[in-house]
Amino acid sequence: MFLGLYNYWIVVLLMMIGFYIVIAHGNLVKKLVGLTIFQTSVFIFYITVGMVERGSAPIIAEGISDYSNPLPHVLILTAIVVGIATTALGLALVIRIKEAYGCVEEDEIQKQDQLSEDES
Protein backbone atom coordinates (compact mmCIF):
# COMPACT_ATOMS: atom_id res chain seq x y z
CA MET A 1 0.00 0.00 0.00
CA PHE A 2 3.01 2.28 0.38
CA LEU A 3 4.15 1.62 -3.19
CA GLY A 4 2.66 4.93 -4.32
CA LEU A 5 5.39 6.67 -2.38
CA TYR A 6 8.27 5.26 -4.39
CA ASN A 7 9.18 8.64 -5.86
CA TYR A 8 10.08 9.96 -2.41
CA TRP A 9 12.20 6.90 -1.74
CA ILE A 10 14.19 7.46 -4.90
CA VAL A 11 14.68 11.07 -3.85
CA VAL A 12 15.82 10.01 -0.39
CA LEU A 13 18.19 7.44 -1.88
CA LEU A 14 19.81 10.00 -4.20
CA MET A 15 19.93 12.57 -1.43
CA MET A 16 21.69 10.15 0.90
CA ILE A 17 24.21 9.21 -1.81
CA GLY A 18 25.03 12.89 -2.17
CA PHE A 19 25.14 13.37 1.59
CA TYR A 20 27.47 10.41 2.02
CA ILE A 21 29.87 11.77 -0.58
CA VAL A 22 29.85 15.15 1.14
CA ILE A 23 30.71 13.83 4.59
CA ALA A 24 32.86 10.80 3.79
CA HIS A 25 35.27 12.25 1.23
CA GLY A 26 38.04 14.67 2.02
CA ASN A 27 38.53 15.82 -1.55
CA LEU A 28 36.83 19.17 -2.06
CA VAL A 29 35.95 18.55 -5.71
CA LYS A 30 34.26 15.30 -4.71
CA LYS A 31 32.36 17.15 -2.02
CA LEU A 32 31.04 19.48 -4.69
CA VAL A 33 30.00 16.53 -6.84
CA GLY A 34 28.13 15.17 -3.83
CA LEU A 35 26.41 18.50 -3.35
CA THR A 36 25.37 18.49 -7.00
CA ILE A 37 23.78 15.06 -6.59
CA PHE A 38 22.04 16.26 -3.44
CA GLN A 39 20.76 19.24 -5.40
CA THR A 40 19.36 17.10 -8.22
CA SER A 41 17.53 14.99 -5.68
CA VAL A 42 15.74 18.13 -4.51
CA PHE A 43 14.90 18.98 -8.12
CA ILE A 44 13.42 15.52 -8.60
CA PHE A 45 11.44 15.89 -5.37
CA TYR A 46 9.82 19.11 -6.56
CA ILE A 47 9.05 17.83 -10.04
CA THR A 48 7.53 14.57 -8.84
CA VAL A 49 5.40 16.49 -6.34
CA GLY A 50 4.12 18.69 -9.17
CA MET A 51 3.22 15.72 -11.34
CA VAL A 52 -0.48 14.91 -11.80
CA GLU A 53 -1.69 11.56 -13.02
CA ARG A 54 -3.02 11.75 -16.59
CA GLY A 55 -1.99 15.39 -16.68
CA SER A 56 -0.02 16.88 -19.50
CA ALA A 57 2.74 19.46 -19.84
CA PRO A 58 1.57 22.89 -18.66
CA ILE A 59 1.17 24.48 -22.07
CA ILE A 60 -2.42 25.43 -22.76
CA ALA A 61 -3.86 23.59 -25.74
CA GLU A 62 -7.33 22.70 -26.90
CA GLY A 63 -8.85 19.46 -25.71
CA ILE A 64 -6.69 19.14 -22.62
CA SER A 65 -8.11 19.83 -19.18
CA ASP A 66 -5.55 18.33 -16.79
CA TYR A 67 -2.15 19.94 -16.53
CA SER A 68 0.65 19.17 -14.16
CA ASN A 69 1.38 21.85 -11.59
CA PRO A 70 3.43 24.64 -13.21
CA LEU A 71 4.69 26.21 -9.99
CA PRO A 72 7.35 23.60 -9.08
CA HIS A 73 8.52 23.70 -12.68
CA VAL A 74 9.16 27.42 -12.44
CA LEU A 75 11.00 27.10 -9.14
CA ILE A 76 13.21 24.28 -10.37
CA LEU A 77 13.91 25.79 -13.78
CA THR A 78 15.49 28.81 -12.18
CA ALA A 79 17.11 26.69 -9.46
CA ILE A 80 18.96 24.60 -12.07
CA VAL A 81 20.61 27.64 -13.63
CA VAL A 82 21.32 29.21 -10.24
CA GLY A 83 22.71 25.83 -9.15
CA ILE A 84 25.26 25.69 -11.95
CA ALA A 85 26.29 29.29 -11.25
CA THR A 86 26.84 28.58 -7.56
CA THR A 87 28.64 25.30 -8.34
CA ALA A 88 30.95 27.28 -10.58
CA LEU A 89 31.58 29.66 -7.69
CA GLY A 90 32.41 26.69 -5.45
CA LEU A 91 34.78 25.26 -8.04
CA ALA A 92 36.44 28.66 -8.33
CA LEU A 93 36.99 28.67 -4.57
CA VAL A 94 38.47 25.17 -4.78
CA ILE A 95 40.85 26.31 -7.50
CA ARG A 96 42.02 29.19 -5.34
CA ILE A 97 42.47 26.81 -2.39
CA LYS A 98 44.55 24.56 -4.62
CA GLU A 99 46.74 27.50 -5.54
CA ALA A 100 47.14 28.66 -1.96
CA TYR A 101 47.69 25.28 -0.29
CA GLY A 102 48.84 23.10 -3.15
CA CYS A 103 46.18 20.48 -2.51
CA VAL A 104 42.42 20.01 -2.22
CA GLU A 105 42.29 17.50 0.63
CA GLU A 106 40.43 18.69 3.69
CA ASP A 107 42.67 17.18 6.40
CA GLU A 108 45.83 18.30 4.62
CA ILE A 109 44.52 21.88 4.49
CA GLN A 110 43.63 21.74 8.17
CA LYS A 111 47.09 20.47 9.01
CA GLN A 112 48.70 23.33 7.14
CA ASP A 113 46.40 25.81 8.91
CA GLN A 114 47.35 24.34 12.26
CA LEU A 115 51.04 24.62 11.44
CA SER A 116 50.81 28.25 10.42
CA GLU A 117 48.80 29.02 13.57
CA ASP A 118 51.38 27.32 15.75
CA GLU A 119 54.14 29.32 14.12
CA SER A 120 52.42 32.60 14.77
Binding site: F43, I47, G50, M51, I59, S68, H73, L77, I80, V81
Partner: peptide, 13 residues
Protein backbone atom coordinates in the same frame (compact mmCIF):
# COMPACT_ATOMS: atom_id res chain seq x y z
CA UNK B 1 7.09 13.73 -15.70
CA UNK B 2 5.54 16.40 -17.98
CA UNK B 3 8.03 19.08 -16.99
CA UNK B 4 9.22 20.03 -20.46
CA UNK B 5 10.67 23.41 -19.54
CA UNK B 6 12.69 21.94 -16.71
CA UNK B 7 13.87 19.13 -18.96
CA UNK B 8 15.03 21.68 -21.50
CA UNK B 9 17.03 23.56 -18.89
CA UNK B 10 18.50 20.40 -17.44
CA UNK B 11 19.49 19.15 -20.89
CA UNK B 12 21.34 22.34 -21.72
CA UNK B 13 22.88 22.92 -18.29
Amino acid sequence: LDAVDVAFTEASV
